[in-house]
Amino acid sequence: MALESFIQLWTHRYKKYTHIFTAHALGYKARLYFKNVKSRLAKNQKLIAIVRTEHFGDIIAAEPISRYVRSLYPDAHIVWFTKPAYQCLVECNPAINEVFTEFCVTQRDVLFKGNVFDEIFELQFRNNNHCPTCNVFIENPVAERRNINIFNYFDYGNLLEVFAQTGDLIPPKTAFPGDDQPRLYLQDAQRHKVDSLNLPERFVVLHCRSNYAPKDWPSERWEQLVAWLAETYDYEIVEVGQESCLNVSTQSFRNLCGKLTILETAEVIRRASLFIGLDSGPSHLGNATGTFGIILMGSLNNFPDYNPYSGGYGRQENAVFVRQLGVPCRELTFEFVQDKVEQVMSKLEIA
């Protein structure tokens, strides 16, 4: 074995085993911490865990579960488990007492094996319970028993209904029994940041790239849409997201990609006259903030026709789904999308 390969091998092993050791140590530390939390609770007060660690659109979709669990256990100490990047989505939720930002699933596994929590509502299944460094998958027994997995989950309803079923909160394939409108809890920090952007009174927000290519619409058609909107309507066009995929020169277009936090993006969407985007995290921000949405959707893997949303978007009271049965999003023509957008814009103009 060449020296360079030898060094790479042992560097990899060092990082892996350091990670595993850290995960176990943090798991035992968290076990002690929550034992202390539980010792300070009243005699009949339950310690409850809600686990939804990713992605940010999924966490927003699952938000009504926090309020539903609170209604079931009004005196409980409720802890939401999430990845650190998404702590902001739940830390100001009044239905939650505490947010636990996990290091990895191994840490959580070690913690839960201590049997500290009285109830654990697992809102995810195998593919969300994986640490690639530890090479560990954590199963959700409820999801296994109900045969809910990455290949069939939309057969069980929208995301909120699926998560409630994997958490054993509702019977299989039933509607969510509580208020199903997702909410966000925006703070002054986000409002002040967006105030500083000096956005116009009338603007349309676009989100043009998801984290999963089969959900996307080609960039050149987005560019056509921007050009047509700029030429036809007196609205500024604001793009949000992690990274822009557009090459646009019109003066009425503004690129805010990569410049905002998740909640700052939510505040921008909240102030917009209209949101146009994909089945992705920002569309869940639109649903939660109440901005009317035009959502470009297509067939997805095993799901020729699906609806990820609850609330106003899910019932299409506050959104229009732009799709054709069995047609992937990338195959939607510009003319088809343009017609749907024009119908909504004409109503905005009248209003």
Rank of each mutant, 00 (worst) to 15 (best):
Y14V: 02
Y14F: 14
T22E: 12
L26F: 12
Y33G: 04
F34C: 04
K35M: 14
N44C: 06
Q45E: 13
A61V: 01
I65D: 06
R70E: 04
A76H: 09
K83E: 10
L89P: 00
C92Y: 14
Q107W: 04
Q107R: 12
D109N: 10
Q124C: 11
R126K: 14
C131V: 02
N135R: 14
F137G: 01
A164F: 07
D168G: 15
K173E: 09
T174N: 08
P177V: 08
L186H: 11
V194L: 09
R202P: 00
R202S: 11
F203D: 00
R209G: 04
R209V: 12
W217M: 11
E220N: 12
R221I: 01
L225G: 03
W228R: 10
Y233L: 11
E236K: 13
E236I: 00
S244P: 02
F253W: 12
G258T: 02
T261K: 14
L263E: 05
V268T: 05
I269D: 06
A272N: 06
A272K: 04
A272I: 01
S283W: 10
L285E: 01
G286Q: 07
G286V: 03
N287W: 07
P304N: 13
Y306Q: 08
S310L: 06
R315Y: 12
C329D: 01
E331D: 13
V337G: 04
Q338E: 09
Q338L: 09
V344I: 14
